[in-house]
C-alpha cells in the first residue's frame, strides 16, 4: 500500500534526510552490527576503558558467558575490537580492547543517532 502512495511533503523530506544518513552498504552492515544493544554496549564500555576483561564486561552488560562470547566474536570478526589473553597468577584472563575502526564505528553511530534526533525533532516541531 505504501508503495502505491509514496509519502509526500514534510514526511517525504524527513525520510530523505534519514535515508541520507545511511550511505553505503558497508555503513548499513556496520549499523546492523551496532543495532544490537549488547554489541553497542561492548563498544561503548571499551571506548572509555582501554582494556576490559571478559568478567568485567559480563558484569557491566549483565549478560551470560555465551551471549557475550557470541557478540564479542562478531565485533572481533568485523575488526571493531581485539582480544588478548594473559594470566593473572594462574587464572587465565581474556582482555578486550577497541580498535581504531571500532572507535570510528561508534563515533559514526553516535553521529547518526544525533542526526536522526535532530532531523525528527525538526520535523515534529
Amino acid at each position: 500500500m505504501a508503495a502505491d502512495n509514496p509519502p509526500t511533503g514534510r514526511k517525504a523530506e524527513s525520510l530523505r534526510t534519514i535515508s541520507g544518513l545511511l550511505k553505503s552498504g558497508e555503513d548499513r552492515q556496520e549499523q546492523r552490527l551496532l543495532n544490537d544493544r549488547v554489541r553497542l554496549g561492548l563498544l561503548s564500555c571499551l571506548a572509555v576503558s582501554d582494556r576490559l576483561s571478559f568478567s568485567e564486561l559480563k558484569s557491566l552488560l549483565d549478560v551470560t558467558d555465551g551471549n557475550l562470547s557470541v557478540h564479542a566474536r562478531k565485533l572481533e570478526d568485523a575488526g571493531l575490537l581485539t582480544q588478548s589473553k594473559r594470566f593473572d597468577g594462574r587464572v587465565p584472563l581474556t582482555l578486550y580492547s577497541l580498535t581504531a575502526a571500532g572507535r570510528k564505528a561508534l563515533e559514526r553511530h553516535l553521529a547518526h543517532m544525533e542526526a536522526l534526533i535532530k532531523a525528527t525533532t525538526k520535523k515534529k516541531g
Partner: peptide
C-alpha cells in the same frame, strides 16, 4: 515512524551514556 526513530535514537544515546559511565566506574 518518525517518533519511533526519534525515541529509538534517544534510547540508544542514553544506553551508550550509561554503559560508558558504568565502564568508567569499573576502574574506580
Amino acid at each position: 515512524m518518525l517518533i519511533d526513530l526519534h525515541s529509538r535514537a534517544e534510547e540508544d544515546l542514553s544506553y551508550i551514556r550509561k554503559a560508558m559511565a558504568r565502564a568508567e566506574g569499573m576502574s574506580t
